[in-house]
Design a binder for these strands. Sequence first.
DNA 1: CGTAAATTTGATGGTTTTCAAGCCATGTGG
DNA 2: CCACATGGCTTGAAAACCATCAAATTTACG
Lengths: 257, 257
Amino acid sequence: MTVSPHALKVMHAAQPRHGCTLCPAGAACLTADATPAERIAWHDLQREWIALPRAGKRLYAAGEPATALFVVRAGCIKTFTVDEEGNERVRGFFYAGDVVGLDALGSAAYPAYANAVTAAQVCRIAKGQLQHALGATPGLLQRLLERMSMELRLALAFSGNYTADQRVAAFLILMKQRLAADSAIDGELKLPMTRRDIANHLRLATETVCRVLARFESAGWLDAGDRILRLRNREALRLQAEPVGVTPVRHSLRLAS
Amino acid sequence: MTVSPHALKVMHAAQPRHGCTLCPAGAACLTADATPAERIAWHDLQREWIALPRAGKRLYAAGEPATALFVVRAGCIKTFTVDEEGNERVRGFFYAGDVVGLDALGSAAYPAYANAVTAAQVCRIAKGQLQHALGATPGLLQRLLERMSMELRLALAFSGNYTADQRVAAFLILMKQRLAADSAIDGELKLPMTRRDIANHLRLATETVCRVLARFESAGWLDAGDRILRLRNREALRLQAEPVGVTPVRHSLRLAS
DNA sequence: CGTAAATTTGATGGTTTTCAAGCCATGTGG
DNA sequence: CCACATGGCTTGAAAACCATCAAATTTACG
């Protein structure tokens, strides 16, 4: 997985001014609530698109100066660290509209690598420009804070100690929520990443993920194809996943102090 | 340390206008880089202090409407979730200057409970006021984003799959960094929370934390008192903790931009 | 079509959890 | 002042869960 300088294709300012309006990320992007004028201003700020034409292409490396954020236009990006033994630890998957690099906002260097999981395309937003835009567009700040808060919530939720079954179930439910638009058929879930990536994300061995999926399949909860799953009993999965807390909030807890 | 019969003591606007200047959190607070004028404006925004006079007192509960953030003035706060079996999962510990509730910024309800670990005191900052202040004080926004980014980085770092030894070592190193000001003696580390809290935070059993500490002690790396540890070989601990990645950055960094 | 990578299943072992019990500190009430 | 209760801390033995190792099969892709 060598990083060639040509891995990144940077395109400058060739798009029409309504570029953001036509973005495939659409309503999922940070600009979703912006006025048309704000949108054009935003679009002018970040005229750089970066294409990652194949899975495995690198967006940035850990340790590099963190000069920008990236909004995914299409495809899937993963962020991950690599320890000295070569073990990957996947920190997150990012789809159209998601923001990659929020964990580097307050850091001089990127704390993780970012690679394409599938062919992908991103908008580059320089930090300086971002700060400027945040001041000019109040709704944007609101949205950015919401994103970061949500990511924090998600990271904290997944960092609990759960069984392999709970983790995998929670992952499937979450992916189904985020990729709802991607699948025409109701219960279908297209996962762009490998089992290994899933395992590295959920802190499990690849084999364990396979086994859990096989268990779920034999329980009749889903059909496990290679990259396409068909969820048959989403309620059972949700029940398994509940302790993780990524599913909608459940109140009604009384506690004394 | 006044002992109040009420769980929460809310004090209104009785402080002098330089309240923030005299805050024990001092330079650790978000207002550290503000001008004196900005500081007074900030202080006027959040005139409510809340006292949690004893360990165990609740600041807020999971599921409650998330109307505010809280900056710790003194003491220690933990956030945690509780599943239906009563298991606590500690999401974070917060000391003077830390911001509690960032994971609720983009959420209508608090995703976790917040309790005092020791007697504590916090500033309440209503969300609406915060948004107003962020627009008025550019440095504040910068700082808040840095905080959230750092918390995200931390949560992601700890969510990897590591051994019990690595987790405990990383926890000790991290706490030593954050509580450096608290201990007069060099290697001393005062941990305000119970072993159980540490275990619930690191996704380990209480007994495992004990055993790891005992192992570290017999290796000569530290002396484990009840709530006061004495770190004797911090380099060895750091080496253990390294894969977790919360220790100072190890890649050679060139700082740009 | 052929090689490399990914997926899957099985057997084995290790780290951590669980269960159980003893010790210690703190605080309370007689 | 002491006895006692409570909760936290510690240590020991057995079990569970998951990782590791190994190998067969399938899939992806040049």
